[in-house]
């Protein structure tokens, strides 16, 4: 029975039988990481603004592994000191693990500083994170955009049979269909497409999609759509009892459950500018 591919760790190079106990195993896995997009090569400015930005959500990014996106500074001739950048970021308790979308020269310099070069793709402009329930949007221009992302660790796989063939190509979106209840503690992710769940998503469960999310059953757990930055993604569900919903990183929690007029109803969740709206479907 095929398992959810988000949780699979596949053997990349299946080992030949060895005479002695193998000391290593090479596996593939999937991680979703926050991206720090820098728009300046002036490290002091970056450092100062980082301090301010991180102070707004201190717990969230502590010790987070992050990827530095260089697209905005890709064409500047001014060099970027990657060694110092790493020091600055580590000083803020961030762990830069790699860079993306830089120029070839920048990539070389990054590697020399011990950062990996990740395969990036052109990213859409992201809204700054403004959780609906806390402070109003920051009016001072920030040069940093960060995404909320969850790390896919090796949680128990959801053994749902996939009815749609998953091609894993960057261009053809595909839909992942889950027919069994998603239980507490489980996590299902649909890469590069929509997620359709035909049974309950229980409290303590998490469903994630780069595209839209449709739950034709009670949604009691957490649903995160458009996780790679698709602000047009939506969440649809039959029976709204969610703990948390998020679209392209903008999230909203429901401490005492959803408001009465929405509880248990069929709703859709979408982003209107920077506001996360939950609206009844009928």
């Amino acid at each position: 029975m095929p398992r959810s591919d988000a949780q699979d760790t596949q053997d990349l190079f299946p080992a030949e039988p060895q005479a002695q106990e193998s000391a290593i195993e090479l596996k593939g896995s999937v991680f979703t990481l926050p991206v720090l997009r820098i728009r300046s090569n002036e490290l002091e400015v970056i450092a100062a603004q980082l301090v301010k930005r991180l102070s707004k959500s201190p717990q969230f990014f502590v010790n987070a592994p992050i990827v530095v996106d260089l697209e905005a500074v890709r064409d500047t001739s001014a060099p970027l000191d990657f060694h110092r950048l790493v020091v600055v970021l580590r000083g803020q308790h961030l762990f830069p693990v790699g860079v993306q979308n830089g120029s070839p020269l920048q990539h070389e310099a990054a590697m020399a500083a011990g950062l990996a070069v990740l395969k990036g793709r052109a990213m859409k402009e992201l809204p700054t994170i403004t959780p609906l329930i806390t402070s109003p949007p920051d009016s001072t221009g920030e040069s940093i955009a960060a995404k909320v992302a969850t790390e896919c660790t090796d949680a128990d796989p959801v053994p749902a049979p996939e009815t749609a063939p998953s091609k894993h190509s960057a261009h053809a979106p595909n839909t992942k269909i889950v027919q069994q209840a998603v239980r507490s503690g489980q996590r299902v992710m649909a890469r590069n497409g929509d997620l359709v769940v035909l049974a309950a998503v229980n409290a303590g469960a998490e469903i994630i999609a780069e595209g839209n999310i449709h739950v034709y059953a009670p949604l009691r757990g957490r649903a995160l759509a458009g996780v790679s930055g698709d602000t047009q993604a939506r969440i649809f569900c039959h029976q709204f009892e969610a703990e948390l919903v998020a679209i392209a990183g903008n999230y909203r929690v429901f401490d005492d459950g959803p408001p009465k007029e929405l509880r248990g109803k069929a709703v859709q969740v979408f982003l209107d500018g920077e506001q996360l709206i939950v609206a009844p479907l009928d």
Partner: peptide, 13 residues
């Protein structure tokens, strides 16, 4: 909640 969790484990492990 815990029973739900163990059901998930039963179905996977």
């Amino acid at each position: 909640r815990d029973s739900d969790r163990i059901l998930g484990i039963l179905q996977a492990r």
